[in-house]
Design a protein around this nucleic acid. Sequence first.
DNA 1: TCCCCAGAAGCAACAGATTTGCTTTAAGGT
DNA 2: ACCTTAAAGCAAATCTGTTGCTTCTGGGGA
Lengths: 189, 189
Amino acid sequence: MSRQMVRPGGRSARVQASVHTAVRELEAEVGRDGLTVPLIAQRAGVTPSTIYRRWGDLAQLLSDVAVERLRPDTTPRDHGGLETDLTAWAEQFLDEMASPAGRAYIRDALLGDPDGSNAGQCSAYAADQVDVILTRAAERGEDTPGVETVVDHVVAPLMYRILFRPAGLDSAHARELVAGLLEGNAAGK
Amino acid sequence: MSRQMVRPGGRSARVQASVHTAVRELEAEVGRDGLTVPLIAQRAGVTPSTIYRRWGDLAQLLSDVAVERLRPDTTPRDHGGLETDLTAWAEQFLDEMASPAGRAYIRDALLGDPDGSNAGQCSAYAADQVDVILTRAAERGEDTPGVETVVDHVVAPLMYRILFRPAGLDSAHARELVAGLLEGNAAGK
DNA sequence: TCCCCAGAAGCAACAGATTTGCTTTAAGGT
DNA sequence: ACCTTAAAGCAAATCTGTTGCTTCTGGGGA
């Protein structure tokens, strides 16, 4: 389980917040590679051992912060039709995730994640967004594929290329994936 | 570039070999999390600074070792038909990659890989295997999709789930992906 | 063949990161 | 208001990474 929910209202929460803030500020100031636990602790007004005890190590702390930053901040825009909605969403997803910053967050999220829960969270974010789009389409009466199908045929290929083949990845490919999905089998699962 | 090819015949090569061996042995003895650079150095009969200078840090060393272990050791078996070949390959791929050990190697390969070359190598291994299968099918006169299509619709979904959604992943899903690919559009790209 | 050079490895001292036992603080429940 | 307990602070001990300098090794040229 992520270390997010720890006595939501007390000192722990304050510490957690100040540590997360310190990470974000320092990342901007000294860069991703300049981050160290003692440095973060100092900025957060906390002792290093607090961080070590709560997060284990820098990797897990960064993983937590990365997941936060990967949380979508808006609901997918409604363009009036499934294909346009999905295409626009996929393009934006790719844009955000394939950027150097996005890649770094994904890596951090995966890296400090012994049990896979943070990675699962990221995947859930994407699945939720897709679900919103599909539900909307279904309400319009459109014939929609299942969330799993979209994840397999759109989200996964994009993420795979982001992680394993940094080159040759553009929004045209995102559009093709969506198009291929909808023409082939609009009624998957 | 991977740190593999360094003066293939001299002392460097011996050091590299003994370090890699030490990593594999120790991983078996103390477990993935018990590994440290000094420990590996001692076992390899080398000073820690040698490792730090050549590999930078533990993550990058592990990444190198992981890529080695992810290299397929056999050519995909020939079952006489595209669908059977692909299905069998996908099931085996999933088996190997989704195991705890496989997941750990993939993570290691991805994480200690600043420039993405090790990840690219892993992806290339899979693509090569798929290519062998497709080429064989084409020679039989079968109608085959392109390698990219197979990577997008079979390899990527499997890898995505392995990394982001450890649960609910079985060979049935691998079979479905292959079936979906071949029924939908046998002549992709 | 012998000698020289460049690239690696060894060594050792150092800086800083991590771990840990114990003490102190403060949320949350009664 | 009091108790319980999880979490934070503190400080000493330990271990990991870093660095300057020396020594070794193997390949190439005279």
